[in-house]
Amino acid sequence: MPHVLVDRVTVRYSDANAKQAALDNVSLQLEPDQLVVALGPSGCGKTTLLNLLAGFLRPTQGRVLFDGKPINGPAADRGVIFQDDALLPWLNVVDNIAFGLKLQGLEKHQRKASAEATLKQVHLDGFSGHMLWQLSGGMRQRVGLARALASDPAMLLLDEPFAALDAFTREQMQELLLQLWHQTHKQIFLITHDLEEAVFLASDLILLSPRPGRVVERIKLDFCHRYTDGESARSIKSDPHFIAMREHVLNLIFAQREPIPA
């Protein structure tokens, strides 16, 4: 039994675009040791896929199983990180990170200790008392990551987490994500429209086509393993193999494009 099973899932929204399914008969298997990245242009149903896994959405047809059980809604075993950090501005950094633990009813000193430890993992030690408006976009996104990690979920779901960050911060965040993946062994599912990010991060890259949303290709990659084995991010990204793979993936995406009507 795979850890996550998306079994012949179709999702149709009840609006004007209902003719075309957002996801059309999609089947996927995700395993605990994988970092799965779903890549595709906007409208390809990658957000729909993430919403299914998070439990924000139910399939019109088919089923989604997590650990063998159907997903019935959002729960603490699947942490979510969005592009906008969705942090709580009335809480300071450490209280934001401890928020999930508070909801679970942990004692104050316990959750503080746990949140401080997670803060270290995202390299924000020393910022626990800061308010969010004192942080940069990248730091806020790290707080978001730490908040999801603090509740110790089995799986992390990231919805274009670094899309709003500047290029330099984004590179750092990608590296941080791989470090966290390596340290915590969390199963990760990430969606992005950033080609280079997808090829760099993914252990399993899933290409989706737009309207109707289908899985075009699933590719096993090892650039993320090279990073966790100690090679530098820049050396990987400038490697001819990396560039060739990037162009290959790009061609696969372009092959899905509808021809521009004359």
Binding site: F82, A86, G100, L103, A148
Partner: peptide
């Protein structure tokens, strides 16, 4: 924000 609510739901 929708995301604020969704994140909180995902935290249980």
């Amino acid at each position: 924000s929708n995301n604020r609510i969704r994140v909180a739901q995902s935290l249980g």
